[in-house]
């Protein structure tokens, strides 16, 4: 059995022609479509048996204003991809181009919301946000810094908790501070690494709503890692599926058929919702492993295939 396990009957798989233009040329001719472009990136770590490859020859375009979710099993290299995008780690090979420039280390243009909340425990809530604001605008007056921090906290519903310390907050509130800190610096790109995985279902839902509201309102470009299928369907415009590691690959990019305006409560009653959900679940359960183990014909790492479903109406 050499063929890839099949995808849903309704979905269309777009496999780009293999003779498509070189990636450099592509980047030039549709620049707006490649606001972020991961180009031939590899990451290897030294291991007892020489170098171990987390992934190699990874190519991924992200459009401006896109909300992109990456899903894949734990250990496949999602955090590594995000750290490379953030500039916290250097790729062993390849480059990441953001807004026409190859990235070289971390930048205030790319805000990160970490998996743990990573607040500074010796600062108050507003102190944490103000730290980011004063890093972004070093010449801003104290009043201005505080003003921006206060506004950012209000956006995530934390008005009134400014002078609490992180240890006094619940997990959900801490993560809100992390979101406020990231948004306060008005980044071009928001990078999130499983931001809600440590939260209970209720606060997770609330925070997903907040993030979706804020990001769609401002047209924020977002790259978010999750291993929660429902979360990715509710939030993302496009969902990147990553196969298991080691030597993980991008299996496909699923275009989310849900309309831009989404209603969480009605999500699971939407016609066709289960089709995309099943497609993603199938991927996690079986295809994520199968696709790594087999050389798949027509899977060009430079042009990840795109899967489209008929547009859904809520």
């Amino acid at each position: 059995m050499t063929d890839v396990p099949s995808i849903s009957a309704n979905a269309t798989r777009i496999v780009p022609r293999l003779d498509a233009v070189e990636a450099g040329a592509t980047a030039r001719h549709d620049k707006t479509d490649r606001f972020i472009s991961i180009e031939g990136v590899a990451r290897r770590f030294p291991s007892p048996e020489g170098l171990s490859t987390v992934f190699e020859d990874l190519w991924l375009p992200v459009r401006r204003g896109d909300f992109m979710c990456m899903i894949g099993h734990s250990g496949c290299g999602k955090t590594t991809v995000l750290n490379i995008l953030a500039g916290l780690e250097r790729p062993s090979e390849g480059v990441v181009i953001v807004d026409g420039k190859a990235i070289d280390g971390p930048s205030l243009d790319r805000a990160v919301i970490f998996q743990g909340h990573s607040l500074l425990p010796w600062r108050t809530v507003i102190g944490n946000v103000a730290y980011a604001v004063s890093s972004r605008w070093p010449k801003a007056s104290r009043v201005e810094v505080e003003d921006r921090a206060r506004k950012a906290l209000a956006t995530v519903g934390l008005a009134g908790s400014e002078h609490k310390r992180p240890y006094e907050l619940s997990g959900g509130m801490k993560q809100r501070v992390g979101i406020a800190r990231a948004l306060a610096i008005e980044p071009k790109i928001l990078l999130m690494d499983e931001p809600f995985s440590a939260l209970d279902a209720l606060s997770r839902g609330l925070l997903q709503d907040e993030v979706r509201r804020i990001c769609t309102a401002t047209g924020q470009t977002v790259f978010m890692i999750t291993h929660d299928v429902d979360e990715s369907i509710y939030l993302a415009d496009r969902i990147v599926l990553m196969t298991n590691g080691p030597r993980a690959r991008i299996a496909e990019i699923v275009e989310n058929p849900l309309p831009k305006i989404r209603d969480r409560a009605g999500l699971h009653r939407t016609d066709g919702f289960y089709e995309i959900r099943n497609h993603l679940m199938d991927f996690l359960v079986t295809r994520s492993k199968a696709l790594r183990d087999r050389e798949v014909e027509g899977l060009d790492p430079r042009q990840p295939s795109i899967v489209r479903f008929p547009t859904l109406r809520q």
């Binding site: 205030l108 990573s118 500074l120 010796w122 980011a132």
Partner: peptide, 25 residues
């Protein structure tokens, strides 16, 4: 590392990092 990474993603210089992150930590 998570606190140092906060400083790095905010492009905080080495001196400010020493006083605002490393010293309090």
């Amino acid at each position: 590392t998570e606190w140092l990474n906060v400083a790095r993603t905010l492009e905080v210089g080495p001196l400010r990092r020493a006083f605002t992150i490393v010293l309090p930590a």
